[in-house]
Every structure is written in C-alpha cells, then in structure tokens.
Simulated scan of single mutants.
Amino acid sequence: MYNPTVARLTYRALLGRRRAAILFALPALLLVISLTVRFFTGVDDKVAAELLGGFALATMVPLIGVIAGTGAIGPEIDDGSIVYLLSKPVKRPTIIMTKLTVAIAVTMAFSAIPTLIAGFILNGNGQQIAVAYTVAALVASIAYSALFLLLGTVSRHAVVFGLVYALIWESLFGSLVSGAKTLSVQQWALALAEKVAGQGYVDSSVGLPTAVILLLAVTVGATAYAGQKLRRLTLAGEE
C-alpha cells in the first residue's frame, strides 16, 4: 500500500523552502545546545538525559511531527487540490498509508537522527542514554505522524490543535497533572526508552505493556479513521 508518485509529491510538499527551514532549524538548535553544554559541563549523564528528554523528546519530536503529519495532507485538503489526487486510480487507503509513511520518514530523519548525534556529543552514549532516547524518538515519530495526519484530515486548524496537544497538553498538563501522563505519546515513548536504559536516568509514568498497547491503538486507530474521512471526502466530491 505505497504509491511512489504520491510519495514524491508529499516529499516535495513537506520539504519545500518554508517547511524545510523549520525542519532543519530544530535539529540544528539541539546540536548547537548539545555542543555548548558539552563544552561547558563535560560528560554528564544526568545533563544528557535532561536535555534529550526535556528538549529533544518533549519539544523537538512533537513539533516536527506536527509539521510533517499535518503537512502531508492538510494543505491539499485546505486548497482543494486533494480532489485532483483523489480523481486518480489510486486506492484511498494507499494514499493515506503512503502519506503516513512519508510523514514518519521525515519525522524520524529530522528528530531521531539528531537525537542520537546529540546524545553521543553529550555523553558518548553513557548509560545507554543516547540510544534510549533515540528509540523513544523513533517510536514517538510513528504515533505523532499518525495522530497529526488524522488532524490534517479532519480539521482546517490541524496545526493549531497539534501545537495545543504537543506544547500545552503534553508539556504543561503532562508535567502538572499525573493523570494526563497516561494520555501522552511522550510518556509512552519514554517507557520504551526506560526499558533500553534501565531505571535511573530515564523514567516514565506509564508501564511498558500499557505504553505499547496505547501506541499501537493510537497509530492504528488514527490511520484507519483518517482513511475513513478521506473516503467520505471522495464520495462527497463525486456527488
């Protein structure tokens, strides 16, 4: 369920001049901060975990997910150009799966790879911290892409809703309200990171079995519902 032509058009849209500037800016900022911290503090496992958890996973990954997930389909729906794509002999699930694949690939490339590099800069993967947070970034990239692709399908204000979830729900409520952490992609991803690094420098408020179930449920559910919405949009357009 992958169409090269749809993928090429989606990559071109996501990596356009304006979006590419934002996509490159966040990883570049992480690397600059990491180099600065390493220069002034040296190798410090605790500092590495705080920076990778507080900036890379909590801020950079969801923001890139918002850009890639909503940008994979939202602009086409907003300007009506999605009609031309839907008129082609391409199955609707194939369109969704292709766009999701592209969104995941872009999110992983611009978040997981810089996270790994930053981790090695900070502490050379001491305590498995670099690899642990990279795993978290990879897993979070999948869930965020599916969730924000769905938002791009159902709402013209997908970017706003995505930012509200990423910056307010996860970062603000997730840190203040214990119950909100259960509904946090960040915490689910941290559960896998904690498994890789062990307890100490990586900590999640959600158990690993629960995290895996919720990650799968959100990814599969969001993708399926996005496919349904696109199918209804097609029928409405044909009528």
Rank of each mutant, 00 (worst) to 15 (best):
V90Y: 10
V220P: 00
L192D: 00
P27A: 13
W169S: 10
A158G: 15
I113A: 15
P4F: 09
W169C: 14
I142N: 09
K229N: 11
V196K: 00
A180S: 11
L190D: 03
A197E: 04
L57W: 03
G152C: 05
F148K: 11
T10P: 06
G200K: 10
F24Y: 12
R12C: 09
Y225M: 07
G207R: 15
F40N: 07
L149D: 05
E170D: 13
I104S: 04
S34G: 10
V83D: 04
V102G: 10
A56H: 05
V159L: 10
T210H: 02
M97D: 03
L214C: 09
T59R: 08
L192R: 03
R18P: 01
F110W: 11
Y133R: 06
V66K: 07
L29K: 00
W169M: 12
K99C: 00
T115H: 10
S81I: 14
A189V: 04
W188L: 00
I168P: 07
A72N: 05
V177K: 02
S204K: 07
G227D: 04
I129H: 05
D44T: 05
L57A: 15
G200H: 09
L147D: 04
Y201P: 01
W188S: 11
V135E: 11
G42K: 13
V196D: 00
S205E: 15
I82Y: 02
Y165H: 10
V154M: 15
L15P: 00
V83K: 13
L138F: 09
A7D: 12
L23V: 11
T59H: 07
A236N: 13
L116G: 13
S34Q: 02
L183Q: 00
A28H: 00
T70W: 00
L52M: 11
Y144D: 07
L190V: 03
L35I: 06
T153A: 14
F40G: 02
G53S: 04
P209A: 10
T5R: 10
E239I: 14
E50I: 15
V220H: 06
V212K: 08
V206D: 06
A226Y: 06
P62R: 04
D45N: 13
G74E: 12
A130L: 04
V66A: 12
N125L: 01
A136I: 01
E76P: 04
T41S: 14
G200M: 02
I22E: 05
A226N: 02
L122D: 02
Q127F: 09
G54A: 03
V202L: 03
V131Q: 03
M60L: 13
T182H: 05
V90R: 11
A226T: 02
L14G: 08
A130R: 06
A236C: 07
A132P: 00
Q187Y: 09
A130K: 05
A140E: 13
L235D: 09
Y2R: 02
G54P: 08
